[in-house]
Design a protein around this nucleic acid. Sequence first.
DNA 1: GCCATATGTGACCATATGGTCACATGTATG
DNA 2: CATACATGTGACCATATGGTCACATATGGC
Lengths: 125, 125
Amino acid sequence: MPEHGTGKNARPGHPRPSDPWKALADPTRRSILDLLRQRERTTGDLCGHFDMTRFAVMKHLAVLVEAELVVVERRGRERINHLNPLPLQRIVQRWIRPFEASSADKLLRLEGHLSKPQIKKAKKP
Amino acid sequence: MPEHGTGKNARPGHPRPSDPWKALADPTRRSILDLLRQRERTTGDLCGHFDMTRFAVMKHLAVLVEAELVVVERRGRERINHLNPLPLQRIVQRWIRPFEASSADKLLRLEGHLSKPQIKKAKKP
DNA sequence: GCCATATGTGACCATATGGTCACATGTATG
DNA sequence: CATACATGTGACCATATGGTCACATATGGC
């Protein structure tokens, strides 16, 4: 049930959410999310913040929408992009928290490897 | 000072960490981190868990190492891969926490837009 | 209706990426 | 030392991705 898998909810308007990690991988898209975190913005507004063309920004926006990180509201001839924080929260809960849980231990064990070669067996002369 | 890469510390051993988001983007690599979270593993051990060839897994491992998500310890003829939780923690602290901070408000405002189906007008024939 | 504005679509290109393989290196052990 | 095992390297290929553009489609105001 927690998995919105391939074929369960195949409603026309929501084909299937794509991997939010993929969407997050691009720094431009992360900047877009950052701008959207401040307030919702039209596509044109967003374009003003980047060096690339309007089309490139729109493509990034499309990726974010497919990952459900951005929700679109049509208002007249404008398109207003809203941040949807849910996928990020899901990532935190299903991915990052578990890593944090067991990290203190590993961190300590790691320091040994990071600083010294940790030779198990004495080298033969 | 003569040009030496991108300024800061271009030491031979540490070229510069690549974007951890990029490394996290691939599901195989996330699975590797998941396995490494349980315990450290050799490359061969990791390969056993995936359908692809050993080389593919090694490439993924290389990406993870460049992003400093994995630390390598050489032990004899084996290579032992350790998880390094620090980059993940950095992502959480510098990226995800700020989003969580302002999300409750946005969530409420979003609900209105999420429930409206956004019907597209029929195309002209 | 007409036109300017704002956004959408498809084609197109260069490069990055995931994946494969043949072959090279290193190391433990008989 | 020889050989098998574990890992490393480079070339190579197919596809995905980021980016561009020309052109098409709404929408609001006149």
